[in-house]
Each structure stands twice: as structure tokens, then as C-alpha cells.
Design a protein around this nucleic acid. Structure first.
Lengths: 195, 195
DNA sequence: TCAGACATGTAATAAGTTACATGATTAG
DNA sequence: CTAATCATGTAACTTATTACATGTCTGA
């Protein structure tokens, strides 16, 4: 599911211009998918070229014109096909966790800074989703509800985990382990394969 | 934190060849970071060019030679710098959630298939991490423990969420909502902005 | 007056994934 | 005999990110 397919899917809920789509992605997909103008506009142009959407320009007073895109029947078929055949991946790329992995090489202040920043982002994400959920009415598709709840659940647990376990990263534990490794000079058996 | 920096960090725990690094990434980073040979080998070559690691070839009988990489002092400084200054992002790209977002457009069987597949992957991830954790001994760095626990917590909650909420995606709810939209012909207000 | 919303796009760049290419050994 | 493990790499491809480019209106 690339940005192109996602735009197609979004348009199946109703017409929109590129700017609208960006806002919707921002509001609803923020916690699990990102898409900037640099990928949305080219995607819409390609969809139009392929006849999967139509585009009509709407001039406006005092603002730039809107290019409103609407999905075609061919577009709906194409999206349906994508839903049936695309393998839905779920990929996390966390430089945060990668960094924490090396916690013992970090300054305690830096470590706190990184953890606090992540907590702040998680809290913000929780609040954002809570705001969305409050605005949901009966007509909101079940999938939209489901993914919002999913995001809320993950953010809550991630924040709790950090709060409840960050103590193990601080001085107490961090001071001993590296000392031991420096004494022996042996690489750590990180996978338990040599034991 | 790109693959290059991550290789540098891994090498700070002990020397290794590209093949080893791949295995370690696979074992320890699998749930939050992916790196294939196609990114690891070029990364190591660049690190060597920059003098951040040294490389010595070790011929072996009956197997291809190993190119063993060892981090240099300059390399340690560079990695330290990266830990101090890199902004640790945490990015999820979930085509799974994107697909579920459109659940009402999916065939019930396909929906089940997708949910079951994700559950299977989550269970596998949980089992994999549990295996790692059992092999941990006292010398395992605290950061390694922390990220393993983090992954376990997230996988558990994700699986629970799916199991406890998948019912809302099935026929009962899914049948009504789209009907309403088709009757009115109005785009759904997905962000609660027009309410 | 100054930031932010509205609205579109292109081009350069970065980065990773996939496929290709090779080849011996070993366990089932 | 067949698949997996060991071990290295390149090249093409796909994709998204970032910076650039432009300009008005509105609210604080």
C-alpha cells in the first residue's frame, strides 16, 4: 500500500483535493502512516493519468484554485483489487529503540532527554486520538474506529512501559555491566548462542 | 540512525563480519528495525573507507572467507557523537492498519485472513522475544533488556486489541454504516470538522 | 506586522529493497 | 538429493523526504 493506493482509498470516501488529503492523513493516519505533499501530489497526478480518478479545477476568490479529485469506477475496482491482494505489512522503524539499545553508552542526562521526548510524543498522540474519538459519530466507519483504538492502546502501553521500566536504564544497572565487559574484553553474547 | 550508524554501534559490542551483523539484527532488532545484506555490506565498506572500522580477512577451510570488522577509536567517538546528537525517531508504517481502516470495503473472509495473519505474526514476535529473554544472562546490557521488554509489551497489547475488538469489524457494524453513506451520498466527515 | 492557513507543484537527494551472481559444505 | 547455512558483494529499482518556488488572505 503506497501513497498512491492510499489516496485512492481516501477518495473512495469522497472527493478531495491534495491539500485536503494531506490534512486527513495528518489527522487520521499520523500514528501509523506518513505522507507529505511531495508524495501526494505526484500520486494524484499518476492516478489521474491512469484514469482511476478524475480531476476538475475549481477557481476560488482570494485563494489558489483547488484541483478536486474524484474516484472513478475503474478506480474503485483497482482499490478493491488492492484490498484483496496487497500483503498488509506492519513495519516499525524505531531509531528510538535502536538508541536505547545502546543506553549504557549514553550520558544519563541525554538518556532522560530522549525518554522524556518520546513520552511527550506518546502523550500527544494519545491526546490527539482521544480528540478524534470524541468527534466520532454513528456514521464513522468501523475501520476508522478500530485503527484509532489501536493507536490509542499502543501509545498508552508504550508510555506505561517507559515510565515503569526506565529506572533499569539509569546509573545503578548501567554502571556495572560495561565495567564487566571491559574487564573481560570479550564481546557480549547478545543472542545467547554461545551459552 | 541509519544502517551505517547501527553497524557501528553493533561493532562497539565486539567485532563481527557482515553476515554476523545481519543475524544479530535479525535476532535483536527484528521487531523495530530491519536491515538486509544490501544495506549492511555497503555500510561496512563505507565505514572502513572512513576509518571508523578496520577490516581483516580471515580465510576459512571449506567456507567463504570472513571479513571481520572491528571498531576504531575514531569509530567510537563517531558513534558517541551520533548518540548525543541524533534525533531518535520512531516511525510506524502500517499498511495493515491502513487496510483495516477500509475494513467495510473488504470481504469478511479477506478481513479475517488479514487479522489472523497479523495475529500470527504478533504471536511469533512474542515467542521470539520470550526466547531471547530466557537466554539473557547478567552481562546483557540494560538497553538490550529494555528494548526486548518494550517489544514484548507492544506485541502483547496489539494482539489483545485485535482479539478483543475484531468483532466490531464484522458484519453487524459493517453492514449498516456503508448503507447510510450510500443513501445520503455525502462524504463522511472523518475528522469531525464540519460538526 | 507576522505567522499560519490556503493551495499547487518540481527537482534533487537519500535510503533501503530486491534481484542477481557465485559456490562449497552439511544435515536431513 | 535437496534445502539450508555460510559468506560476499553489485546494480537496478522503488520510494519517500527535503528543499525550493509562489502568492493571497486572515487573525492575533
Amino acid at each position: 500500500m503506497d501513497v498512491k493506493t492510499l489516496c485512492l482509498g481516501m477518495l473512495s470516501f469522497g472527493e478531495a483535493c491534495g491539500y485536503d488529503l494531506k490534512k486527513r492523513f495528518e489527522a487520521l493516519f499520523r500514528h501509523f502512516y506518513s505522507a507529505g505533499y511531495g508524495s501526494i501530489y505526484p500520486a494524484l497526478a499518476e492516478l489521474a493519468d491512469a484514469g482511476l480518478v478524475t480531476c476538475h479545477s475549481v477557481p476560488q476568490e482570494g485563494r489558489p484554485e483547488r484541483k478536486v479529485y474524484r474516484i472513478t469506477e475503474a478506480g474503485r475496482r483497482q482499490f478493491d483489487e488492492a484490498l484483496r491482494t496487497t500483503r498488509p505489512q506492519h513495519k516499525l522503524r524505531s531509531e528510538f529503540l535502536a538508541m536505547i539499545y545502546f543506553a549504557e553508552l549514553m550520558q544519563p542526562e541525554r538518556l532522560d532527554e530522549v525518554l522524556d521526548e518520546r513520552l511527550r510524543e506518546l502523550r500527544e498522540s494519545e491526546a490527539h486520538i482521544a480528540g478524534l474519538q470524541q468527534a466520532f459519530d454513528a456514521a464513522v466507519p468501523v475501520g476508522v474506529r478500530f485503527v484509532a483504538g489501536f493507536g490509542a492502546a499502543l501509545a498508552r502501553v508504550a508510555a506505561e512501559y517507559i515510565e515503569q521500566n526506565r529506572h533499569m536504564l539509569s546509573s545503578a544497572g548501567a554502571a556495572r555491566a560495561p565495567a564487566r565487559r571491559r574487564r573481560t574484553g570479550q564481546p557480549v553474547d547478545l543472542m545467547g548462542t554461545s551459552a
